[in-house]
């Protein structure tokens, strides 16, 4: 066990390195940073409960995708019991007009890169 000291120093260095992003943000005064998302001004309620949407919007989009593409359905029923078209570009972007300030801001904070927009078209971007 003569290497005890070296091992401990090594472990400390490793811990500092791996937690570096935390210290870096603390130093910049951004420790508690949470992205501010732009919410729709007029509509108050999404097609599902807000907490569900926060955690599971991707699952709902997957479900919509399969129902539209594979089952050929068009409409879903929202929370209020009203029919809504299952469409990322028309229904989702219909309220969340600013994709950059809503989708992208949170995705980049979470460091996820969904590939929806490789194919689906944000109508604003074609104008």
């Amino acid at each position: 066990m003569r290497d005890k000291g070296r091992i401990i120093i090594g472990l400390v260095i490793f811990l500092i390195l791996i937690t570096f992003p935390v210290w870096y943000n603390v130093a910049r005064g951004k420790a508690g940073y949470v992205p501010q998302l732009e919410k729709p001004a007029t509509v108050k309620q999404c097609v599902r409960d807000t907490s569900f949407m926060k955690a599971h919007h991707m699952d709902l989009l997957d479900e919509w995708r399969d129902r539209v593409v594979r089952k050929g359905e068009v409409m879903d029923i929202d929370m209020a019991g009203k029919p809504v078209e299952m469409s990322l570009t028309r229904t989702c972007l219909g309220c969340h007009h600013n994709r950059e300030a809503f989708c992208n801001r949170c995705h980049s904070y979470m460091d996820v890169s969904p590939y929806c927009w490789d194919c689906h078209v944000d109508p604003k971007e074609t104008k």
């Binding site: 068009v74 409409m75 009203k82 029919p83 809504v84 078209e85 028309r90 229904t91 972007l93 219909g94 309220c95 109508p123």
Partner: peptide, 28 residues
């Protein structure tokens, strides 16, 4: 059948509001 499902006035209206260039959703 499908018309009944989502053919109500306000729903088609709600959708067409958010549609950019596409025409209204008609009877399939």
């Amino acid at each position: 059948a499908p018309v009944k499902l989502f053919g109500t006035e306000d729903s088609t209206q709600a959708v067409s509001d958010s549609v950019s260039s596409r025409k209204e959703i008609g009877k399939p």
